[in-house]
Simulated assay, not measured.
Amino acid sequence: MKDFFSSFIEQPFDGLKSWLFFSPMLYSAFYFLAFFFEDFSGEKTALILAAYALYLFLYTAIYLDHKRALIYIAGIILLCIGISSILFSSYALLWSSSYFCGYLYKRKAAIALLAVNIVSAVVASQILSHGNVLFFLLSSILPLVSTWFFGSVGQYFKLDNIIKKQKDQQIESLAQIAERERIARDMHDLLGHSLTCIALKSELAAKLLNTDNIEKAKTEIEEVSELSRTALQEVREAIGNYKKRSFNEQIKSLVAKLHSADIQVSTDLANLKLNAETETALTLVATEAVTNILRHSRADKVHISLIDKYNKLVFTISDNGQIKKLVEGNGIQGMRERIEKLGGKIQFQIKNGMTTEISLDESIAC
């Protein structure tokens, strides 16, 4: 039964850590609206408060156990209908249940559950012992539909973020595969010839030993030894190059990631010899900028440039994305701190996309 209910769920919550946990709860404040218009006996007040406590339990249960959310939503609906006989503002509980239906469930199931909430509001209005039925319906159904829509929009953005994360992971995976293939090709090109020569010379030395041609066999074995040392040195150099790739090589790797996301990239990189500290800082900044482009910008064109301008090194990354406002999170702050530590300046401009521009004194950067 639990699996049956969960099969209709489109997107669960992130548990109590999600900010969405609190937003629908605000609607329930209208539950106490009736207290401003009439006085309740002590027994009725206790019953109303007990019903609200039960609502909070069901509300929290939806977040903690979303697979059984339909049961808890049904509980909220029944609670609303039951308490409406003494509290005309009980309709506020339906707003939360409607939000959950819009956020949690697939479109067809969500629409069906919206209809159930509307029918429940109608039923609750007929149980009212006093109060205006039309006012009850208008006060419950219109906000009910609005909160359902709000929940549906929340689900859309949640799914969109998940798709973006999956795409980022896929891009990262493709980049890793490409890097492994490059290393494999390099190792093949590097060792293929040397190992072939070693094998041939070893076979030749064995044949020469069989014919008692000791001197020639010794010469071949010495050459095998020399080839082995040369191959070992080449492998060590190759590994050292992998550990320390140049700035331009790092940029090429980032460009490959952008290409994997179907983003056109143009580059204008001057052949400048940067010091190690500058290379590291610019590489980290470029990596953060490209990550932000992939995750947030929805750009399809990117330009990366590194130029020497009036004794200043200017590094620029620009895109044609849809960023309207810059929010300086940890990533942006980290970029700023790295560049300012080198005595440089970093600027962000939002116009027809986003441009990140870094300027450093040539005497510091090179």
Rank of each mutant, 00 (worst) to 15 (best):
I171H: 07
V116C: 09
C101Q: 07
I171V: 14
S98N: 08
A115L: 15
L114A: 08
V122H: 03
I81N: 01
W95V: 04
K165N: 03
N117F: 14
G131N: 08
L144A: 01
K108D: 11
V122N: 04
C101H: 06
Q169M: 10
V119C: 12
G102Y: 03
L94G: 15
P143T: 01
Y156V: 12
D160M: 08
I162N: 10
K158Y: 13
V116P: 09
K108W: 10
G102F: 02
K108T: 13
N132F: 12
P143C: 06
V145W: 06
I83P: 00
L144C: 03
I162Q: 12
I127K: 04
N132G: 09
L134D: 00
S97K: 09
N161L: 13
S90C: 13
S96W: 03
L138I: 15
L144T: 06
L94M: 15
F135A: 11
S140W: 08
A112P: 01
V122S: 06
L114D: 07
I162S: 10
G82P: 00
L134N: 05
I83S: 04
Q155A: 12
N161W: 13
F136Q: 02
F150W: 11
G82T: 09
F100G: 06
F136K: 00
Q126L: 15
Y99W: 11
A124G: 05
V119S: 11
S152E: 07
G82V: 10
Y99C: 01
I162T: 13
L142I: 15
Q126Y: 14
I171M: 08
G151S: 08
S120T: 03
A109R: 02
A175T: 06
S146N: 12
W148S: 08
A112V: 15
C101T: 15
V116K: 01
L113F: 11
G82M: 12
W95E: 02
S152G: 05
Y91I: 00
S120L: 06
L94K: 08
L128Q: 11
S139P: 04
F136A: 05
V153N: 13
V122P: 05
K158S: 14
D160W: 13
L144K: 00
L104N: 09
S97R: 09
K158D: 12
L138K: 12
K158W: 12
V133S: 04
Y99V: 00
Q169N: 12
I118Y: 03
S85M: 09
K106Q: 14
